[in-house]
């Protein structure tokens, strides 16, 4: 039986129809809303590539059923800024060139955004702890920490 949900993504409401209310939010965002920010990395809540903000919290969209996200504000990487109006974190990742393949970067920025919302000037250790659940295989860690620090200082 098909179910229809109103998803509030990046300030816009999209109605998505799914066969399975347990389908993870990630698939709705990527395949129905047509977004490219959140990525599929594990589907197990282990890597962070799929991170979005749901009701102001950073969550793993691969592990949240679409039915549970309905009606709550969802913010993705696309929603926090774009080329003409970059979010300070996006700007800082560019300034620090904190990308290798870039596949993990959605998760890094979205997780860091949640961190900076509760701690405006985190130490290196606090940044590392906050990102400990986000995996990067390319070894971009050092630059990512620098980028988050830079963003914090520009947002202060």
């Amino acid at each position: 039986m098909a179910h229809t949900y109103a998803l509030r993504v990046n300030g816009r409401t999209t109605r998505v129809t799914v066969d399975d209310p347990d389908m993870p939010l990630l698939y709705a965002l990527r395949n129905q809303v047509g977004l490219r920010g959140p990525q599929f990395g594990c589907g197990l809540g282990q890597c962070g590539a799929c991170t979005v903000q749901l009701g102001g919290q950073a969550v793993r969209s691969c592990s949240v059923p679409v039915s549970a996200a309905a009606g709550k504000p969802v913010t993705t990487l696309e929603g926090i800024g774009d080329a003409g109006r970059l979010h300070p974190l996006q700007q800082a990742f560019i300034d620090e060139q904190a990308v290798q393949c870039g596949y993990c970067i959605n998760g890094m920025i979205m997780q860091a955004k949640a961190l900076l919302e509760r701690n405006r000037s985190p130490s290196d250790e606090e940044i590392r702890a906050a990102l400990a659940g986000n995996l990067c295989r390319c070894g971009t860690h050092v630059r990512i920490v620098r980028a988050v620090k830079r963003a914090a200082s520009t947002m202060a």
Partner: peptide, 19 residues
Amino acid sequence: VPRVDIPAIVTGRFEFMHD
């Protein structure tokens, strides 16, 4: 020189194979 692909990556506009 800054990498040309990074702005699209950090704003979720880059097209990966997966996209």
